[in-house]
Amino acid sequence: MAPFGLMTVGANFLARSWGVFSSAVTVRCSCFAPTLKSFSTSTGGPPKRPLTAYLRYVKEQQPIVVRQNPDIKAVDIVRKIAQQWRTLTPEDKQPFEEASIAAREQYRIDMKAYQDQLTPAQSAAIAEEKRQKKAKRRAIRKKRELNSLGKPKRPRTAFNVFMAEHFEEAKGSTMPGKMKSLFEDWKSLSISQKQIYTQLAEDDKVRYKNEMKAWEEHMTELGREDLVRRKESRRKKAATKKGKKKSRVKVLKAKAPVKKTAGKKTASAEPKKPSSTKK
Protein backbone atom coordinates (compact mmCIF):
# COMPACT_ATOMS: atom_id res chain seq x y z
CA MET A 1 0.00 0.00 0.00
CA ALA A 2 1.12 3.55 -0.69
CA PRO A 3 2.49 5.46 2.30
CA PHE A 4 -0.07 7.74 3.89
CA GLY A 5 2.24 10.77 3.64
CA LEU A 6 2.64 10.25 -0.09
CA MET A 7 -1.09 9.96 -0.54
CA THR A 8 -1.62 13.12 1.46
CA VAL A 9 0.73 15.00 -0.86
CA GLY A 10 -1.18 13.63 -3.81
CA ALA A 11 -4.44 14.65 -2.21
CA ASN A 12 -3.29 18.20 -1.72
CA PHE A 13 -2.03 18.38 -5.28
CA LEU A 14 -5.26 17.07 -6.70
CA ALA A 15 -7.31 19.43 -4.58
CA ARG A 16 -5.38 22.38 -6.00
CA SER A 17 -5.91 21.19 -9.55
CA TRP A 18 -9.47 20.01 -9.21
CA GLY A 19 -10.42 21.13 -12.68
CA VAL A 20 -8.58 18.20 -14.21
CA PHE A 21 -11.32 15.85 -13.09
CA SER A 22 -14.69 15.60 -14.75
CA SER A 23 -17.66 15.56 -12.43
CA ALA A 24 -20.27 15.09 -15.12
CA VAL A 25 -20.36 11.32 -15.39
CA THR A 26 -19.17 8.32 -13.46
CA VAL A 27 -16.07 6.86 -15.00
CA ARG A 28 -15.66 3.14 -14.71
CA CYS A 29 -12.35 1.31 -14.40
CA SER A 30 -12.82 -0.26 -17.82
CA CYS A 31 -12.07 3.09 -19.45
CA PHE A 32 -8.52 2.86 -18.15
CA ALA A 33 -7.75 -0.27 -20.13
CA PRO A 34 -4.56 0.14 -22.13
CA THR A 35 -5.31 1.80 -25.43
CA LEU A 36 -2.43 2.66 -27.75
CA LYS A 37 -2.91 6.07 -29.29
CA SER A 38 -0.90 7.20 -32.26
CA PHE A 39 1.18 10.22 -31.38
CA SER A 40 0.73 13.20 -33.66
CA THR A 41 3.62 15.63 -33.96
CA SER A 42 1.30 18.28 -35.35
CA THR A 43 0.27 19.23 -31.82
CA GLY A 44 3.67 20.80 -31.30
CA GLY A 45 4.01 19.67 -27.70
CA PRO A 46 5.39 16.65 -25.89
CA PRO A 47 3.06 13.83 -24.80
CA LYS A 48 1.54 14.14 -21.37
CA ARG A 49 2.95 12.07 -18.56
CA PRO A 50 0.74 9.10 -17.64
CA LEU A 51 -1.18 8.91 -14.38
CA THR A 52 -0.03 6.63 -11.62
CA ALA A 53 -2.22 3.78 -10.39
CA TYR A 54 -3.30 5.83 -7.40
CA LEU A 55 -4.22 8.90 -9.45
CA ARG A 56 -6.22 6.70 -11.81
CA TYR A 57 -8.18 5.41 -8.85
CA VAL A 58 -8.76 8.97 -7.63
CA LYS A 59 -10.00 10.01 -11.05
CA GLU A 60 -12.45 7.12 -11.10
CA GLN A 61 -13.75 7.59 -7.57
CA GLN A 62 -13.98 11.39 -7.54
CA PRO A 63 -17.40 11.73 -9.24
CA ILE A 64 -18.78 8.89 -7.11
CA VAL A 65 -17.65 10.45 -3.84
CA VAL A 66 -18.85 13.90 -4.96
CA ARG A 67 -22.31 12.50 -5.69
CA GLN A 68 -22.41 10.71 -2.34
CA ASN A 69 -21.04 13.69 -0.37
CA PRO A 70 -22.18 16.89 -2.10
CA ASP A 71 -21.59 19.14 0.91
CA ILE A 72 -17.99 18.32 1.85
CA LYS A 73 -14.93 20.21 0.66
CA ALA A 74 -12.74 19.12 -2.24
CA VAL A 75 -9.76 18.46 0.02
CA ASP A 76 -11.88 16.22 2.25
CA ILE A 77 -13.14 14.33 -0.79
CA VAL A 78 -9.61 13.56 -1.93
CA ARG A 79 -8.62 12.55 1.59
CA LYS A 80 -11.58 10.21 1.70
CA ILE A 81 -10.50 8.63 -1.59
CA ALA A 82 -6.95 8.29 -0.25
CA GLN A 83 -8.29 6.43 2.76
CA GLN A 84 -10.24 4.11 0.47
CA TRP A 85 -7.08 3.42 -1.54
CA ARG A 86 -5.28 2.33 1.59
CA THR A 87 -7.92 -0.28 2.31
CA LEU A 88 -7.83 -1.85 -1.18
CA THR A 89 -6.31 -5.29 -1.58
CA PRO A 90 -3.51 -5.95 -4.10
CA GLU A 91 -6.10 -7.65 -6.33
CA ASP A 92 -8.29 -4.52 -6.27
CA LYS A 93 -5.33 -2.31 -7.15
CA GLN A 94 -4.09 -4.55 -9.95
CA PRO A 95 -6.29 -3.12 -12.77
CA PHE A 96 -5.09 0.39 -12.00
CA GLU A 97 -1.46 -0.69 -11.78
CA GLU A 98 -1.65 -2.61 -15.07
CA ALA A 99 -3.23 0.38 -16.80
CA SER A 100 -0.49 2.63 -15.38
CA ILE A 101 2.27 0.30 -16.64
CA ALA A 102 0.73 0.19 -20.13
CA ALA A 103 0.38 3.97 -20.15
CA ARG A 104 4.03 4.42 -19.16
CA GLU A 105 5.12 2.14 -22.00
CA GLN A 106 3.01 4.13 -24.46
CA TYR A 107 4.44 7.34 -23.03
CA ARG A 108 8.00 6.14 -23.73
CA ILE A 109 7.05 5.34 -27.33
CA ASP A 110 5.34 8.68 -27.83
CA MET A 111 8.20 10.59 -26.19
CA LYS A 112 10.78 8.91 -28.45
CA ALA A 113 8.70 9.77 -31.51
CA TYR A 114 8.41 13.35 -30.30
CA GLN A 115 12.13 13.71 -29.63
CA ASP A 116 13.10 12.13 -32.96
CA GLN A 117 11.17 14.76 -34.93
CA LEU A 118 12.83 17.68 -33.12
CA THR A 119 15.62 19.67 -34.71
CA PRO A 120 18.85 20.30 -32.72
CA ALA A 121 17.76 23.90 -32.18
CA GLN A 122 14.39 22.80 -30.82
CA SER A 123 16.03 20.26 -28.51
CA ALA A 124 18.36 22.95 -27.19
CA ALA A 125 15.45 25.34 -26.68
CA ILE A 126 13.48 22.69 -24.75
CA ALA A 127 16.52 21.90 -22.59
CA GLU A 128 16.97 25.60 -21.82
CA GLU A 129 13.28 25.96 -20.97
CA LYS A 130 13.53 23.03 -18.56
CA ARG A 131 16.61 24.58 -16.96
CA GLN A 132 14.80 27.89 -16.47
CA LYS A 133 11.74 26.20 -14.99
CA LYS A 134 13.94 24.23 -12.61
CA ALA A 135 15.75 27.39 -11.54
CA LYS A 136 12.42 29.15 -11.04
CA ARG A 137 11.13 26.32 -8.85
CA ARG A 138 14.30 26.47 -6.77
CA ALA A 139 13.90 30.23 -6.36
CA ILE A 140 10.26 29.83 -5.29
CA ARG A 141 11.17 27.16 -2.74
CA LYS A 142 13.97 29.36 -1.45
CA LYS A 143 11.65 32.36 -1.12
CA ARG A 144 9.05 30.30 0.73
CA GLU A 145 11.70 29.03 3.11
CA LEU A 146 12.96 32.54 3.83
CA ASN A 147 9.41 33.78 4.38
CA SER A 148 8.72 30.94 6.81
CA LEU A 149 11.90 31.86 8.69
CA GLY A 150 10.73 35.46 8.98
CA LYS A 151 13.29 37.17 6.79
CA PRO A 152 12.69 40.96 6.80
CA LYS A 153 11.20 42.52 3.70
CA ARG A 154 13.50 44.55 1.51
CA PRO A 155 13.39 48.34 1.86
CA ARG A 156 10.98 50.22 -0.35
CA THR A 157 12.00 52.86 -2.85
CA ALA A 158 10.60 56.39 -2.76
CA PHE A 159 8.18 55.53 -5.57
CA ASN A 160 7.06 52.37 -3.75
CA VAL A 161 6.21 54.45 -0.69
CA PHE A 162 4.28 56.93 -2.86
CA MET A 163 2.46 54.11 -4.66
CA ALA A 164 1.40 52.41 -1.40
CA GLU A 165 0.05 55.69 -0.07
CA HIS A 166 -1.98 56.66 -3.15
CA PHE A 167 -2.88 53.31 -4.70
CA GLU A 168 -6.53 53.26 -3.58
CA GLU A 169 -7.25 56.71 -4.97
CA ALA A 170 -5.35 56.18 -8.22
CA LYS A 171 -7.21 56.38 -11.51
CA GLY A 172 -7.91 53.25 -13.48
CA SER A 173 -9.92 50.10 -12.89
CA THR A 174 -7.12 47.62 -13.57
CA MET A 175 -3.70 47.15 -12.05
CA PRO A 176 -1.81 48.32 -15.18
CA GLY A 177 -4.10 51.35 -15.39
CA LYS A 178 -3.50 52.30 -11.76
CA MET A 179 0.25 51.82 -12.12
CA LYS A 180 0.35 54.04 -15.19
CA SER A 181 -1.66 56.72 -13.39
CA LEU A 182 0.58 56.57 -10.31
CA PHE A 183 3.71 56.81 -12.45
CA GLU A 184 2.37 59.90 -14.21
CA ASP A 185 1.48 61.46 -10.85
CA TRP A 186 4.95 60.68 -9.53
CA LYS A 187 6.61 62.37 -12.49
CA SER A 188 4.52 65.48 -11.95
CA LEU A 189 5.66 65.90 -8.34
CA SER A 190 8.18 68.61 -7.52
CA ILE A 191 11.58 67.87 -6.02
CA SER A 192 10.45 69.09 -2.61
CA GLN A 193 7.38 66.84 -2.72
CA LYS A 194 9.47 63.82 -3.73
CA GLN A 195 11.90 64.57 -0.91
CA ILE A 196 9.28 63.46 1.64
CA TYR A 197 9.07 59.99 0.11
CA THR A 198 12.82 59.87 -0.38
CA GLN A 199 13.29 60.43 3.35
CA LEU A 200 10.74 57.74 4.17
CA ALA A 201 12.63 55.36 1.89
CA GLU A 202 15.89 56.18 3.70
CA ASP A 203 14.20 55.46 7.03
CA ASP A 204 13.02 52.14 5.63
CA LYS A 205 16.61 51.28 4.70
CA VAL A 206 17.62 51.82 8.31
CA ARG A 207 14.74 49.60 9.42
CA TYR A 208 15.82 46.87 7.00
CA LYS A 209 19.44 47.05 8.08
CA ASN A 210 18.56 46.69 11.77
CA GLU A 211 16.07 43.90 11.20
CA MET A 212 18.47 42.00 8.95
CA LYS A 213 21.21 42.22 11.54
CA ALA A 214 18.93 40.76 14.22
CA TRP A 215 17.60 38.11 11.81
CA GLU A 216 21.05 36.98 10.73
CA GLU A 217 22.15 36.70 14.33
CA HIS A 218 19.12 34.49 14.97
CA MET A 219 19.90 32.37 11.90
CA THR A 220 23.46 31.92 13.15
CA GLU A 221 22.10 30.69 16.48
CA LEU A 222 19.92 28.19 14.61
CA GLY A 223 22.90 26.93 12.65
CA ARG A 224 21.76 28.40 9.33
CA GLU A 225 24.91 30.32 8.47
CA ASP A 226 24.16 29.55 4.82
CA LEU A 227 21.40 32.18 4.95
CA VAL A 228 23.62 34.87 6.43
CA ARG A 229 25.08 37.46 4.08
CA ARG A 230 28.85 37.38 3.93
CA LYS A 231 29.69 40.53 2.03
CA GLU A 232 32.59 41.49 4.26
CA SER A 233 34.05 38.00 4.24
CA ARG A 234 33.68 37.84 0.46
CA ARG A 235 35.45 41.17 0.12
CA LYS A 236 38.26 39.97 2.37
CA LYS A 237 38.61 36.76 0.40
CA ALA A 238 38.64 38.69 -2.86
CA ALA A 239 41.25 41.10 -1.47
CA THR A 240 43.35 38.17 -0.24
CA LYS A 241 43.19 36.44 -3.60
CA LYS A 242 44.08 39.69 -5.34
CA GLY A 243 47.02 40.21 -2.97
CA LYS A 244 48.26 36.66 -3.54
CA LYS A 245 47.99 37.12 -7.28
CA LYS A 246 50.00 40.34 -7.11
CA SER A 247 52.62 38.62 -4.95
CA ARG A 248 52.97 35.78 -7.45
CA VAL A 249 53.33 38.26 -10.29
CA LYS A 250 56.03 40.14 -8.36
CA VAL A 251 57.90 36.92 -7.63
CA LEU A 252 57.78 35.88 -11.27
CA LYS A 253 58.95 39.29 -12.39
CA ALA A 254 61.76 39.22 -9.83
CA LYS A 255 62.89 35.76 -10.90
CA ALA A 256 62.78 36.34 -14.63
CA PRO A 257 65.49 39.11 -14.80
CA VAL A 258 67.80 37.15 -12.52
CA LYS A 259 67.83 34.21 -14.90
CA LYS A 260 68.48 36.41 -17.91
CA THR A 261 71.25 38.36 -16.15
CA ALA A 262 72.94 35.21 -14.93
CA GLY A 263 72.89 33.82 -18.42
CA LYS A 264 74.44 36.94 -19.87
CA LYS A 265 77.18 37.09 -17.23
CA THR A 266 78.01 33.46 -17.74
CA ALA A 267 78.25 33.96 -21.45
CA SER A 268 80.54 37.00 -21.08
CA ALA A 269 82.69 35.38 -18.37
CA GLU A 270 83.48 32.27 -20.39
CA PRO A 271 86.68 32.64 -22.43
CA LYS A 272 86.28 32.31 -26.10
CA LYS A 273 87.68 29.08 -27.46
CA PRO A 274 90.18 29.43 -30.28
CA SER A 275 88.73 28.60 -33.59
CA SER A 276 89.88 25.34 -35.06
CA THR A 277 89.88 26.54 -38.62
CA LYS A 278 92.77 25.38 -40.77
CA LYS A 279 95.29 27.93 -41.82
Results as ranks from 00 to 15, higher is better:
residue 107 Y to F: 15
residue 162 F to C: 00
residue 83 Q to N: 06
residue 113 A to V: 05
residue 194 K to A: 06
residue 207 R to T: 10
residue 117 Q to A: 10
residue 150 G to Q: 12
residue 167 F to K: 06
residue 16 R to M: 09
residue 64 I to S: 06
residue 204 D to R: 01
residue 175 M to I: 14
residue 261 T to R: 14
residue 97 E to A: 14
residue 238 A to Q: 10
residue 10 G to D: 14
residue 278 K to Q: 06
residue 34 P to S: 09
residue 22 S to I: 02
residue 60 E to P: 00
residue 227 L to S: 04
residue 69 N to R: 13
residue 63 P to H: 08
residue 218 H to K: 13
residue 265 K to H: 12
residue 18 W to M: 07
residue 227 L to G: 08
residue 21 F to Y: 14
residue 245 K to R: 11
residue 121 A to E: 08
residue 25 V to N: 09
residue 9 V to N: 09
residue 114 Y to P: 02
residue 166 H to R: 02
residue 187 K to F: 01
residue 232 E to G: 05
residue 199 Q to D: 15
residue 10 G to R: 07
residue 215 W to Y: 07
residue 51 L to G: 06
residue 179 M to K: 11
residue 167 F to A: 03
residue 267 A to H: 15
residue 65 V to Y: 07
residue 137 R to S: 14
residue 54 Y to Q: 14
residue 209 K to A: 11
residue 158 A to G: 04
residue 162 F to W: 00
residue 81 I to Q: 01
residue 120 P to L: 08
residue 158 A to W: 06
residue 74 A to F: 04
residue 136 K to I: 03
residue 6 L to I: 10
residue 9 V to L: 13
residue 267 A to K: 15
residue 240 T to R: 13
residue 228 V to D: 02
residue 72 I to L: 10
residue 127 A to I: 01
residue 10 G to I: 10
residue 148 S to T: 07
residue 204 D to Y: 01
residue 189 L to C: 03
residue 78 V to H: 15
residue 43 T to N: 12
residue 12 N to D: 03
residue 277 T to M: 06
residue 36 L to R: 12
residue 63 P to V: 07
residue 67 R to L: 11
residue 34 P to L: 08
residue 230 R to L: 03
residue 150 G to A: 11
residue 138 R to M: 14
residue 83 Q to M: 09
residue 37 K to E: 15
residue 137 R to P: 00
residue 193 Q to E: 15
residue 84 Q to H: 06
residue 215 W to S: 09
residue 58 V to A: 15
residue 269 A to Q: 15
residue 107 Y to I: 02
residue 161 V to Q: 11
residue 75 V to S: 09
residue 99 A to P: 04
residue 117 Q to R: 05
residue 83 Q to D: 08
residue 220 T to G: 11
residue 2 A to P: 14
residue 137 R to I: 13
residue 151 K to H: 07
residue 29 C to P: 05
residue 52 T to F: 02
residue 152 P to T: 03
residue 157 T to H: 00
residue 251 V to C: 05
residue 159 F to M: 07
residue 29 C to W: 10
residue 252 L to I: 05
residue 148 S to P: 03
residue 109 I to Q: 15
residue 40 S to C: 11
residue 236 K to P: 04
residue 185 D to N: 09
residue 16 R to C: 03
residue 197 Y to H: 04
residue 198 T to L: 09
residue 2 A to K: 03
residue 136 K to G: 03
residue 80 K to C: 07
residue 215 W to C: 04
residue 89 T to Q: 12
residue 167 F to N: 01
residue 144 R to E: 15
residue 14 L to C: 13
residue 95 P to T: 00
residue 153 K to Q: 14
residue 35 T to F: 12
residue 36 L to E: 13
residue 242 K to G: 05
residue 228 V to Y: 00
residue 49 R to A: 11
residue 165 E to D: 12
residue 204 D to S: 01
residue 142 K to T: 09
residue 186 W to C: 00
residue 104 R to H: 06
residue 10 G to Q: 05
residue 271 P to H: 06
residue 73 K to Q: 09
residue 277 T to I: 09
residue 145 E to G: 06
residue 147 N to G: 02
residue 58 V to T: 11
residue 120 P to Q: 06
residue 39 F to H: 12
residue 127 A to L: 04
residue 235 R to C: 02
residue 214 A to K: 09
residue 243 G to V: 01
residue 59 K to R: 15
residue 225 E to V: 12
residue 258 V to I: 13
residue 247 S to I: 01
residue 119 T to R: 01
residue 254 A to H: 09
residue 122 Q to R: 01
residue 254 A to E: 13
residue 27 V to A: 08
residue 230 R to V: 04
residue 270 E to N: 12
residue 166 H to L: 00
residue 105 E to M: 11
residue 7 M to S: 08
residue 176 P to L: 06
